[in-house]
């Protein structure tokens, strides 16, 4: 079992004909992901190594029955790509692209909430999602993840997501699903979305969480954890020793209040009963301890 995607998930790649889309789309297919279509209005009717290209997501959905899409479109086109995917009928959208303007993210996040409340967006600027052994959408190297559970992973940072998978695999611990939510200002999927899904997933017995300094997503997750999570959690927050960042005028300081530092995040998580490590290895050791007691 897994969350959001599994071996049955059919995926459309928006931007499959571009260099990045082609590279990762084919790697994902080699991993076993059901990559059923690509889109490009100028190349409709052609194919990429046997994967048919359609003019739009709507056509691709109609022809293949896909319910997920993965976006490898350059940043200027991501806003329309996300809306095209939602309008086209998929209910899970993974936007890998980095460098999307924050105003675009705020706009399509709220547009989806309003017009497509059942659509889940992951990203932008994220490594994607992998349910090891079943489905890999995005840029994670599939073989660094050990299939089978019992741990679910949710992470705000790309390379630290891999580091987390690696720490667990070294200890022989498998993963149900690993979600990289990305570190942009308005992520489509939050820690809380993932924690709730892991709580509901019978195969996931524990959760590993990787956060970063800045924003208040970890503090909000901590509050959700104390109220809603019964499964044990270990965590690591990157940037414990980072010098205080450049604050964004008075407005930024007022909005963040005391939140945003690694210390505040770690304390909030510890108070919620989370085992917090000082580095990824420690968080992995803490998870190994949790798993041994399950």
């Amino acid at each position: 079992m897994s969350i959001f995607v599994n071996s049955e998930t059919k995926v459309i790649y928006q931007g499959l004909t571009g260099s990045q889309g082609r590279y990762y789309g084919l790697l994902n297919r080699d991993y076993g992901t059901k990559v059923v279509a690509g889109t490009n209005p100028k190349k409709a009717g052609t194919d990429v190594e046997g994967i048919p290209i359609f003019a739009s997501v709507a056509e691709a959905v109609e022809e293949t029955g896909a319910k997920a899409s993965c976006i490898f479109i350059p940043a200027p086109g991501v806003r329309s790509a996300v809306l095209e995917a939602a309008q086209g009928g998929v209910d899970f959208i993974v936007a890998i692209t980095e460098g999307v303007p924050a105003h675009d993210e705020a706009l399509f996040y709220n547009q989806l909430r309003k017009d497509f409340p059942n659509v889940q967006l992951l990203g932008p600027n994220c490594p994607g999602i992998i349910s090891p052994g079943e489905c890999n959408i995005g840029i994670t190297a599939g073989h660094i993840a050990l299939p089978g559970g019992p741990v679910g992973i949710v992470s705000r940072s790309g390379t630290l997501t891999y580091q987390a998978l690696h720490e667990l695999k070294e200890k022989g611990i498998g993963c149900t699903t690993c979600v990289g939510i990305g570190g942009d200002p308005v992520p489509g999927t939050s820690f809380i979305d993932c924690l709730a899904a892991f709580e509901a997933d019978p195969e996931t017995k524990a959760v590993m969480m990787i956060g970063e300094i800045g924003g208040s997503a970890e503090e909000e997750a901590a509050e959700f954890i104390s109220n809603n999570m019964t499964k044990p959690i270990s965590a690591y927050i990157a940037g414990v020793t980072a010098p205080p960042g450049k604050k964004m005028g008075h407005a930024g300081a007022i909005v963040s209040g005391g939140k945003g530092t690694a210390k505040a995040k770690m304390e909030a998580l510890e108070e919620a009963g989370v085992k917090v490590g000082n580095n990824p290895t420690e968080a992995g050791d803490l998870m190994a301890e949790i798993v041994s007691q399950l």
């Binding site: 570190g183 940037g239 580095n279 990824p280």
Partner: peptide
């Protein structure tokens, strides 16, 4: 020197630790 912002931040942490 590290690859990825998160790993770079984490490396700074560990050097300090």
């Amino acid at each position: 020197i590290a690859n990825g912002a998160g790993l770079a931040m984490s490396t700074v942490d560990v050097v300090n630790q």
